[in-house]
Design a protein around this nucleic acid. Sequence first.
DNA 1: GCAGAGGTTAGACAGAGTCCAATTCTTATC
DNA 2: GATAAGAATTGGACTCTGTCTAACCTCTGC
Lengths: 140, 140
Amino acid sequence: MMNTDYSRANLAEVLRGHGITPTHQRIEIAHALFSKMAHLSADQVLAIVNERHAETSKATVYNTLKLFVESGLVREVIVDPSKVFFDPNTDPHHHFYDIETGEITDIDAAKVSIAGLPELPPGKVAAGMDVIIRVKRAIA
Amino acid sequence: MMNTDYSRANLAEVLRGHGITPTHQRIEIAHALFSKMAHLSADQVLAIVNERHAETSKATVYNTLKLFVESGLVREVIVDPSKVFFDPNTDPHHHFYDIETGEITDIDAAKVSIAGLPELPPGKVAAGMDVIIRVKRAIA
DNA sequence: GCAGAGGTTAGACAGAGTCCAATTCTTATC
DNA sequence: GATAAGAATTGGACTCTGTCTAACCTCTGC
């Protein structure tokens, strides 16, 4: 996991480290995701980035989020139709999604196991797999 | 689980048994779902129902699928934004979704366990919970 | 500092799903 | 079988995410 320095200068280095040219817009989008350390939708990212001055277009936000997902900087969490969130925590973990409140809760990957799968020994779900458990009420 | 008689007459009875007024359109939608016993999208249901003669509107298909989900007749399987499927198999089970091929595979509910949750003893996920595991390649 | 690849942009577009007011159907009652 | 009232259906306009495009801008290596 990356360190906790969310300065623009450090974020630029993080992007370079992932082979991503650090432009203004990309740094602002990374800052929005990492400084909040929350599950954000594309729309929320767009709003945060343009809070003070409109400086980033919708197309760029979508392009950049896609790029970040491809390079492993953030994860995509799909919880509902037209509710895609981007999660800056790329440690192996999964999610509860409360279909009543819309709340998302992280679950340790080690807590989810699927029997009978050689690729996925019980007690550990392979990294990169995305387990979304939709519940009626958040269970902490 | 309901029996395997998918005649219109029997489907009408099944709908009544769930407190649903059996209209022509609803019976046709139920027939599409149960006779195929497959994961269908709203769009696919609309196409199947109007195969011979256009007789059911988009609004009705959406209304009816929502109604069926609420009354427990089918399950909603959300695999991707703008990829929602309706599953006539309401037995407790979960899904693998192959993000490369789009293929959906059923998994026995008993094979998925989440440790540390009193409501969900290991080895069995509570009915009504919906576990969607997104993988890169279908694992049978 | 230049060239050019790569990044950004506004706005048009696409597809899934929702909403609405008018119309049609179902069903309970007679 | 006719009737009335509530329930269901309809088409079309609308919304919301997300994609695409073609022109323009910016970053980087030389």
